[in-house]
């Protein structure tokens, strides 16, 4: 197999897509399964350490994991030639199109989650961390919005992962 072999590159992009996705969803689940439920149990004087040191670092890998997952995923779908069929959920595609329907639903769910990360969670978390100025009321509203959206993404991650794995192992 030559280095210029197209198949080699699709395998590399798929691997990069999965590594990025684990970085993203791993941090999403860390926030929802570990950090958020533990925060109320942490003594008040220790909480700033989480918000000032752990949260910014975790959010960095979280949001860029999301960006690279989407980027590599779209490149992979294009290279494999099913990107348009997937966007249309396989509707109107030659039968059988089950794989396109499954990966398409997964792609749409993942794209909604990516949007939530970059355009709802991240801007609101910047207010919570104090890197963007906000009144105390705005900070409380931002904390609630970021938390709820993160929970929405946790909920969506379950069917999204089903679609990704189903499509990858259907044939």
């Amino acid at each position: 197999m030559e280095l210029s072999d197209f198949n080699w590159w699709t395998q590399f992009i798929r691997w990069a897509h999965i590594i990025s996705a684990i970085m993203w969803i791993g941090h999403l689940w860390y926030f929802n399964f570990t950090q958020t439920p533990t925060m109320p149990k942490i003594p008040a004087e220790l909480r700033p350490a989480v918000v000032r040191f752990i949260l910014p670092e975790a959010l960095f890998w979280f949001r860029w994991g999301a960006m690279f997952t989407l980027g590599f995923g779209l490149i992979l779908a294009y290279m494999n030639g099913y990107i348009l069929d997937a966007i249309k959920l396989g509707i109107g595609s030659p039968s059988p199109h089950t794989k396109a329907t499954a990966i398409g639903i997964g792609m749409w769910l993942g794209t909604i989650m990516w949007f939530n990360v970059w355009f709802i969670i991240w801007p609101n978390q910047q207010k919570v961390m104090g890197t963007v100025s906000a009144t105390p009321d705005e900070v409380n509203a931002a904390r609630r919005m970021a938390g709820l959206t993160s929970r929405v993404n946790t909920m969506l991650s379950i069917p999204m992962l089903y679609c990704m794995v189903f499509a990858g192992h259907y044939y």
Partner: peptide, 30 residues
């Protein structure tokens, strides 16, 4: 909805219910 999402078990159960819905849609469109 907010009450459901504020509960971690509620969020996970909702995720599994959505997965069943998605699986039905995939097979319905197949």
């Amino acid at each position: 909805m907010e009450k459901l999402l504020n509960s971690l078990p509620g969020t996970i159960i909702a995720g599994f219910v959505l997965t069943v819905v998605v699986a039905v849609i995939i097979h319905a469109l197949a």
